[in-house]
Amino acid sequence: MTEDPESKPPSPPRANWRVVLRRVVYPLLVIAVIAAVIWWIEYRPGDNVSPTGERYGPVDLPVALVPLGAKVAAEEGALAPDFLLESLRADDMRLSDFRGQAVVLNFWATWCGPCRKEIPQLVEAYDRHRDEGLVVIAVNLQEGRGIVRPWAEDFGMEFPILIDRDGEVGDKYRARSLPQTYFIDPAGVIQSMFIGPLLDERDGTDVQDAISDSELDLRIAEILSPVTDEGS
């Protein structure tokens, strides 16, 4: 051990809030700013804006469409949350545009095998009930038009296909797995929700947990002629 000529005896502690500010508060602020920048880079929203300047994604339901005291939520018995999305044909659509019609709202993706198997059932159901006012809206989660279009054309999906690029609408509707389908009556109320593929039974050739072939029709019948509180 050698003597260090630089050594100096320590001076007694002094209260100095400027030192605290410089050595504690400022570094913490810098760390906070860095953390905020990292968070923003990770989770920044996309520049997903419609030609009219509105941001695609969940939007508020027009006041005129919300009866007094009605709840807006992605759950049975509540008004279906509204959204604005671009369609495969490049026009914008809102869910509230279809108020007055029974809506089957289906969340899907081309990479999702059960979704692919379910599509023919939805196409058939749409063909059967479109004259009765049924609308099927297929919300594709986070894929591009170039991927979705060939599937839509080949599978004969003539109903509106909307693209949820950021997945915010899927998030709003709690689409934790695909496919997921909401059945919405003409008053905009969610009558039921189904997680998984709505497959018909084909003499044991379908997956084991497939539902009976009447399930989709039953749920569609429910929203085509909903039972009101008055029992009408």
Partner: peptide, 17 residues
């Protein structure tokens, strides 16, 4: 074929073809 990198509902979703 195309597959997503993350589970459904990830804001940073990436697909690989």
């Amino acid at each position: 074929a195309t597959l997503p990198v993350f589970a459904v509902r990830n804001v940073n979703q990436i697909q690989v073809e």
